[in-house]
Design a protein around this nucleic acid. Structure first.
Lengths: 138, 138
DNA sequence: TGTTTACTCTATTAATCCGATAGGATAAAT
DNA sequence: ATTTATCCTATCGGATTAATAGAGTAAACA
């Protein structure tokens, strides 16, 4: 299961992607439309901005807007920013590798072998689905 | 990422599956071989027993052993028992369905639509990988 | 029958994470 | 200047996780 943070982030990105123009949208607008706590959404959008997917404008008429084309925002990137590693165990993570504390030797671990397969399969979905695909069929 | 509970459970099942005979294996043997806290492993094996995958014998010569054929234990079942829902959001879970608190209407939710696809894809991997497949190539 | 062995069950704990909130700082528009 | 709206840090209660403790139960075996 993904956290609310990730779900909210996806909903907000989808909301922004569906605007006709690229005019900034205020946090309060998104939070009301999508039933998300405004303060919580603030921190989520901030993460997405720091990751380079969104830009913001302060002051009157300000807000958030997409910085990239929707087709250039793969689900995998959003997931990594908001949720963390895509791999099921740290020892097979490409972007967040960590040794498992209980494994003296990864290469002799069945779970390790299995999780590499699961990771590759999951990755192929998440890398090949973009924000565009995902609002397309609404 | 999966919890340690699930990882330990997988390792323990794999360990049992690799025994030649179906003689009971003591918790302490598994916990030492796999570097798992014995007490924690106790509760994990108990869950797997209650779910019908393992059986146990008490007393001398006792321990845990597999109750089903390794090919009849899909990863999906183990995952559901130890980790919980496979779906990324409760509103698309087949076995643990719950309405999302922030969605007045699931059918108009982009995330909902997307997560159905992700779920089906993930499911097809986890349902079609059995404990047998997963120890096979060690 | 009694002792050892090993699973069963409950419950407690420390640490971490999650979701949410508060409030002041900063920057832009008018 | 004043208003608007993002930026940033800090905090909080509650839930979950991983691990531990200890008493209870059942089986084997001498």
């Amino acid at each position: 299961m993904i956290s609310r943070k990730t779900k909210y982030g996806l909903k907000a990105l989808s909301f922004l992607a569906k605007q006709e123009s690229n005019k900034p949208v205020q946090i309060s607008v998104i939070s009301e439309a999508e039933n998300i706590s405004q303060k919580f959404l603030e921190s989520i959008l901030l993460s997405l901005r720091k990751a380079g997917f969104l830009a913001s404008k302060k002051g009157k008429g300000g807000g958030y807007y997409l910085l990239k084309e929707t087709r250039d925002i793969p689900l995998a990137s959003i997931y990594r920013i908001l949720e963390g590693p895509i791999a099921m165990v740290p020892c097979v993570s490409l972007n967040f590798y960590e040794k498992c504390h209980d494994c003296p030797d990864e290469h002799s671990c069945d779970v390790h072998k299995l999780m590499i397969q699961v990771r590759d399969n999951t990755l192929s979905i998440l890398e090949n689905t973009s924000l565009q695909d995902f609002i397309k069929e609404s």
